[in-house]
Write a protein that binds this DNA or RNA. Structure first.
Lengths: 303, 303
DNA sequence: GCTCGCCCCAAGTGGTGCTTATGCTTAAGA
DNA sequence: TCTTAAGCATAAGCACCACTTGGGGCGAGC
């Protein structure tokens, strides 16, 4: 079986016309070249070079091998170069899937930083909520899934703890929930309020997991919220509150890039954190472009 | 440094989707594949495959490598196939240089046999006398030189013994010298004659080496021949003898394919042998096509 | 819940590739 | 002609590498 190493030696010998010169070129000693050539001739089954006095000449078989070696070694260095580009973050693609509201500020920041730091890489973005984004991650449809969980309330988020334990979980940001009330609400001008003070209000909830969490938190505060509406769309929640149809508890991040119309934010007591994390497979965490993107997400979260 | 072995393993893994299946395909155990892949990832500097539950998936770097591997391994097998064809005598070229009169019967016979036995090989033929043909052999302009020598008379052939000792000398044929006299000559009807009986005749000699040899032989018989003409061309010698201009001593082979007009052949006493040999360089004797052609020449000489 | 298949890990072993040291041959120069 | 330098071959020693066997963990399917 001919190996690339043999071809490198043969090519060096053919080019220099001498074992010693080839050895210098290859950075090894002359006997090493001599042995490699002997092994190559052994596996070829025919002499490849003939020694005519001082000079070396290739046999027909030797010429054939050298002719092929050019293309083979060129292909090999091209392959090495492409892999090195990926490993060195001069190339590489990352498919990121984010939950909808995460895309508003966090993801754009990280994407811009990634592009600036490693211009050769490209990051594609898709949106999906955690159950679906985890599926995509496991199914090979993306490399990073941006998701969130409520660590303080284990019971409210059974999926997160049990289904993520074989994933790499990279904390990105801890997001606090704030209350949103219509501006004509009696608490609209307060700085903060307890959950219990909103026990009688109609609630507008977010995504299914957020809704479950809300119920859990409210029950700990001593009441079961009356949920009139539920929608994945944070702007819709804001609009509903602004229209005076109820109150809501929203992540601060969802309000970072918009100013609610007809509604006021108030601090909620007790403080509830929503933790935004980036998820990936253990093997993928070793891929340079993925690791770099994780770093950029974490950096974006620190701001 | 990526080796062909690595690419073979990677390709097998990519194709089968499993280390075990790849190992079966490659004829080794599964840990061997596992280690090779680890080594390849090490030298690539980035993961190449990710294990998602049961199935294997290639990373982008892995896909790139597999993509290149196809061409590289194809080139490698093509190179191996070409070398194997040369080694297996399904291909290969031999350049043969013969002295002029050797081409008449011996070489055509050997060439025809070579072509019949190994249709893929090709033999080219050129003509040159020994000093020049040996130069060509050493200079890489041919692989086999067909030459002759007079082994019984060492002094007459100094070049042969001293200059051929680093060559492979393959005996092909022992050729006897016969006398050629005009048909009106007093010895024309004799079966044989001694050299001394031709002491007074004008001689027609062949090539320079043949001429030197003739002088030596005649001097051993007690006289110095009077050489009126000398020519490399055997038909010319025959013509000159046929015209009654003198006598000659010719190799039997030179008369094998022609019938002298106006001249008669007689046995010469003592018998003088001319040995036809095939010469090549030691390294070249290992080249299959060269070795085969040497065999064919020897076989042709035995007939 | 059990078994099967697949992968990883660890240890042992044979082979292989490299090195240094040495000898031989050849070509060039005194 | 003798000497010197350069190049290749060989041998011995050594380190490394690739493969093997044996054992364990894990997920999938009956």
């Amino acid at each position: 079986m001919i190996e690339a190493r043999h071809l490198r030696v043969l090519r060096a010998v053919a080019r220099t016309g001498s074992f010693s010169a080839a050895a210098r070129e290859l950075g090894c000693t002359q006997p090493a070249v001599s042995q490699q050539m002997k092994a190559l001739e052994q596996s070829a089954g025919t002499p490849l070079i003939i020694r005519a006095g001082r000079e070396m000449r290739l046999t027909q078989a030797g010429q054939a091998l050298v002719r092929h070696a050019a293309g083979i070694l060129a292909g090999l260095t091209a392959a090495e170069e492409e892999v090195a580009a990926i490993a060195g973050l001069r190339a590489g693609r990352v498919r990121l899937v984010s939950f909808p509201s995460g895309s508003s500020t966090l993801v754009p920041t990280a994407l811009a930083a990634m592009r600036a730091a490693y211009p050769g890489t490209e990051v594609s973005l898709d949106e999906a909520e955690p159950p679906r984004s985890i599926e995509m991650l496991r199914g090979g449809d993306c490399e990073i899934a941006l998701a969130f969980r409520y660590p303080e309330v284990p019971g409210a988020d059974p999926a997160a703890e049990s289904e993520w334990d074989d994933l790499v979980v990279r904390p990105v940001l801890s997001d606090r929930l704030v209350g949103l009330v219509p501006e004509e609400h009696r608490l609209a001008d307060e700085a903060s309020a307890g959950f219990a003070e909103l026990a009688k209000e109609p609630w507008i909830a977010g995504c299914p997991r957020c809704r479950r969490h809300l119920v859990t938190v409210c029950e700990r505060a001593g009441f079961t919220p009356r949920i009139d509406f539920a929608t994945d769309d944070y702007p819709a929640v804001i609009g509903l509150v602004g229209a005076g149809l109820g109150v809501a508890a929203l992540p601060e991040l969802a309000l970072a890039s918009v100013r609610p119309k007809g509604a006021r934010t108030i601090r909620l007591e007790p403080v509830v954190q929503r933790e935004i994390v980036a998820l990936t497979l253990p093997d993928l965490a070793q891929v340079p472009a993925v690791a770099a993107m994780l770093d950029q997400l974490a950096a974006a979260g620190r701001r």
